[in-house]
Amino acid sequence: MREQARFWRHPAVPEVDLLKARYVTHRFTRHVHEGYAIGVILEGVEEFDYRGTLNRAAAGQVVAVNPEHEHTGQAGEPGGWAYRMLYPSIDTLSSLAAELRLPPGTPHFPSQVLTDPDLARLLTSAHAATEHGNDLAASTLIRTAFARLLRRHAIPRPAVELPASGDLAVRRAVEVLHESLIDPPSLDDLARAVQARPFPLLRAFKAATGLPPHAYLTQLRVRHARRLLEAGVRPAQVAAEVGFTDQAHLNRHFKRIVGVPPAAYQRTAGTYKTPEIGSHTL
């Protein structure tokens, strides 16, 4: 079976990215999302490590990944898995939770694999509506699906502050990495810049962000690359502007985090084109 994927947005739900894919050998490297990752497994089994816990999601189950929580993704059986994924922003679900008059706080999903057939069917229908439905159907079904997800499976979670020990150094280190996409410092130089020792900084950084500094930097580069691709910048130029050595380097890391290559992402992200599953072979 070929690996196939399509990434797009619908104009009626601009704060929600959409992915429809089948993966067999593809593996998502450890990464985080700025928003949520909500999906329905259509076939097979997806296996993913979520903050040190191994999860398995089978056909008919729902996956719920919280923002900025590190996780992986790979096949849980030889045939791989197929799924529909929705990536709503934090503001999208927080605003909806407020409209529903749910308890205040950022929505948080304590369980990452949900067995809820009604919700799975509704999420699948909502996702399909962005392919085949009109603006009203797409926006209505997605909001209805997210409302059910929030009411049944979310709890409020206040903003989590960084640990008191080393938090200032971590905050400064994050700022340095944001400013150093092209020419990042070594761990020793980063530690000196924030007046910390390398290994204590490494431990504190990973505890606060879920990723070591080098992986966090790759995540930043890919996020910036997405914005440039959406603006129409050519992938080769994007690679240079975000600090990757060449386009192949960008392709490798981009696909491991986003699930599709940069050129495929650029063709559809930010525009609505009725996607056909299998229209892009990985």
Rank of each mutant, 00 (worst) to 15 (best):
P11H: 13
N55A: 07
E276L: 11
Y216C: 00
D91H: 12
F146Y: 15
E99S: 13
A12S: 14
V242S: 06
A159Y: 09
A59D: 06
I142Y: 07
A193P: 01
P213E: 15
A59M: 12
Y216R: 02
A196K: 01
L114S: 01
A97K: 02
G278N: 10
F244V: 11
S95R: 11
F199V: 12
T271M: 08
G35Y: 07
V233T: 15
P156V: 12
P184N: 07
R172D: 02
P107I: 14
D183A: 15
T144K: 09
L96D: 02
P67A: 11
G44D: 03
L136C: 09
I257M: 06
T106A: 11
A207D: 13
E68R: 15
P158D: 15
L114E: 02
S165D: 12
E99V: 08
A207E: 15
L123T: 06
K20R: 15
G105P: 02
E3A: 07
D91N: 10
H108P: 00
P78A: 10
R252K: 14
N251Q: 14
H132C: 01
Q247V: 14
D188K: 07
L86M: 11
H280K: 05
A5P: 04
A169G: 00
H33D: 03
V113I: 09
G133P: 04
E77G: 02
N134C: 11
Q195M: 01
E3H: 12
D17P: 00
H10E: 14
H249Q: 13
V113C: 08
A264W: 02
P103D: 09
H224D: 01
R22L: 06
K206P: 00
G210L: 13
L19H: 08
V40Y: 04
S125K: 12
A82D: 01
D49K: 07
A120L: 10
W81T: 08
M85C: 00
E68D: 08
L42N: 05
L201E: 01
T281Q: 08
A164D: 08
L250H: 02
T245H: 08
H127M: 09
G44L: 03
A64G: 02
A207W: 03
H69E: 13
T268C: 01
R9P: 00
A120Q: 05
V32N: 04
S165F: 04
L217P: 00
Y23A: 09
Q4P: 00
A82W: 03
H280D: 12
G270C: 01
A154W: 08
H10N: 05
E77W: 01
A164N: 10
